[in-house]
């Protein structure tokens, strides 16, 4: 699929701030499942500073904007050619040892419910186990926007039995790690017009390291593995660590944010 992505985030401040510093994980990298064509990040009035590929294979850019600032927009315009690899991440250049992703973080820290669920699933092999864990999380946590927040932990989402893709990913990651499988959080985009299901174009899922296959994506929210509708941006221990945008404004102004993401299929 040839996907055109437009992603615009605007930050506005009721009192102008002195400066803004951002670390952007907003550039997909090319691998067997996706080939990145034109890709442009624009930060209005901003200066691009540090730019590098990190050990996990993600392209990171540091941007700074000098104030006074009352409005900043970060715009992505890009084209990605995707194909279905049944969720397997192949040809992605990275050097972090998968074992590093066995550690739990504050939001993936399991409680008894997650432990029970992780323990209750049996698989014929690691891949089968990962599929079954993914299905179990999808069955347990109902997709329901608005009931959880960005800081909601996997344990809290389990308790409420409702959440969004972030909660599904966190819960699946927690269970995979409990079963000794390295797991990580992936942020990206999803082209979703064809199945009519209610999900965001900005999406997140989990990757689980299954033996010889390496990293394989699992989207518990949609009960599937990422295919040609998915564009992978970057990864981390959890949502915060994998966040496409991490930033800080210097000033007393209160920030409000507006995000628009659009993913459409374009012809050759």
């Amino acid at each position: 699929m040839r996907l055109k992505i437009t992603h615009e985030t605007s930050y506005s401040y009721d009192t102008p701030v002195e400066a803004l510093v951002q670390s952007l994980r907003l550039t997909p990298s090319s691998h067997e499942g996706q080939r990145v064509g034109d890709w442009r990040i624009t930060v209005a009035g901003g200066q691009r500073g540090a730019a590098f590929r990190d050990g996990a294979g993600d392209w990171i850019e540091g941007w700074t904007v000098r104030g006074p600032i009352d409005l900043v927009s970060v715009t992505i315009d890009g084209l990605v050619e995707t194909r279905d690899t049944a969720g397997v991440l192949r040809g992605h250049r990275e050097s972090v040892n998968p074992m590093v992703y066995l550690r739990q973080t504050a939001v993936t820290k399991p409680d008894d419910a997650l432990r029970d669920l992780a323990k209750s699933i049996q698989g014929q092999d690691a891949l089968d186990l990962a599929h079954k864990l993914c299905a179990a999380i999808g069955d347990t946590i109902e997709y329901m926007p608005g009931v959880t927040q960005s800081q909601t932990s996997a344990a809290q989402a389990m308790e409420q039995r409702q959440g969004v893709c972030q909660d599904h990913a966190h819960a699946l990651i927690a269970c995979a790690r409990l079963r000794g499988m390295p797991a990580r959080y992936v942020s990206g985009y999803l082209h979703s017009s064809m199945d009519g299901k209610p999900h965001d174009a900005a999406h997140a899922w989990a990757e689980i390291h299954v033996g010889p296959l390496g990293w394989v994506g699992f989207d518990a929210a949609n009960a599937c593995c990422p295919d040609e509708r998915y564009v992978r941006l970057g990864s981390g221990y959890d949502a915060q660590d994998a966040a496409p945008v991490r930033g800080m404004a210097f000033g007393i102004g209160t920030e409000s944010m507006d995000v628009r993401v659009h993913v459409e299929e374009v012809q050759q």
């Binding site: 510093v21 670390s23 540090a50 850019e61 700074t64 930033g247 800080m248």
Partner: peptide, 19 residues
């Protein structure tokens, strides 16, 4: 922006410059 996001002791963006 890289580690604990509640840290008031550090320098936002320092790790990107370092890396």
């Amino acid at each position: 922006l890289c580690f604990r996001k509640d840290s008031m002791l550090g320098v936002p963006g320092l790790m990107d410059v370092y890396r």
